[in-house]
Design a protein around this nucleic acid. Sequence first.
DNA 1: AGCAGTTATATTGTGTGCAATATAATTTGA
DNA 2: TCAAATTATATTGCACACAATATAACTGCT
Lengths: 151, 151
Amino acid sequence: MREDDDFLRLDRQVCFPLYAASNLFGRLYRPVLAELGLTYPQYLVMLVLWEQAPQSVGAVGERLHLDSGTLTPLLKRMESAGLVTRQRDATDERRVLVGVTAQGVALRDAARAVPQTLASGLGLSAAELSDLRATVQHLVGVLATAEAEVS
Amino acid sequence: MREDDDFLRLDRQVCFPLYAASNLFGRLYRPVLAELGLTYPQYLVMLVLWEQAPQSVGAVGERLHLDSGTLTPLLKRMESAGLVTRQRDATDERRVLVGVTAQGVALRDAARAVPQTLASGLGLSAAELSDLRATVQHLVGVLATAEAEVS
DNA sequence: AGCAGTTATATTGTGTGCAATATAATTTGA
DNA sequence: TCAAATTATATTGCACACAATATAACTGCT
């Protein structure tokens, strides 16, 4: 094996632990969120809408770094579940405004325990979690910039 | 908005930047790996197999934190593409051994440039990348432990 | 006014992820 | 020894992600 090949070792990759951590986090969230009737991406949408609603599909997608190909079917499922509303913006009919139903607002109370429930199971200190969050948030900024430069 | 609700703010979540970074990384890798005829998870499988082959499906899955429900169809596509082989282990017929074809071995030469290509596009120093990797690798260990404790 | 270019969302097709279940092979223990 | 429990992979069904494309609506420009 040549020296160059060391860069192809799995434990040298930066992307792989991110990928694995994201999957593992999703698996941890799943049973907790299932009690709320949400998947993890749906939970993220609710976090965005609980902060402000209504918002356009594009605005939600910009916040979550997701496009309409992912969000449209996801939002339709959430609409069927009675959590959100979808209606064309009267002032710009190209846009669809996503709102929160009374049931969606009520769900926020049940969701309040979720972050603590999951954090407590990890055995990491608040400081460690905060450092980790800041570090990866910075990376997301770098990656989003790199993505924007390409297109 | 009550104090408790602050924990539900998107920018307070640890999981979300991991999720977003994983997706954004996948988007950055996609065009580069497409030239090799690989998706990102397939690339990870090749990294594992280039280190050692053959390996059982379970061994690959343990390394990548993926199960047979994900790996079986993925490996079948890679087999169809002529990159890997799949055959029952003669000593334990429950297991399937995944090997690398000559074409799969040859692909390693083309892949050697991938890590550098992507890292150079980010504008992060080697030290920053190394710190980030170590930090998230540690998290993966914590999450994998938490997962194991549940089951 | 009206057409070209742009914008916002929807659709289609492919490839993951994963829980639940099924199937087949191995191991264990009475 | 042989049936029960365990193990390894495969299958099924559902929900993302995303590129490519389609469609409808808006904006600018003449």
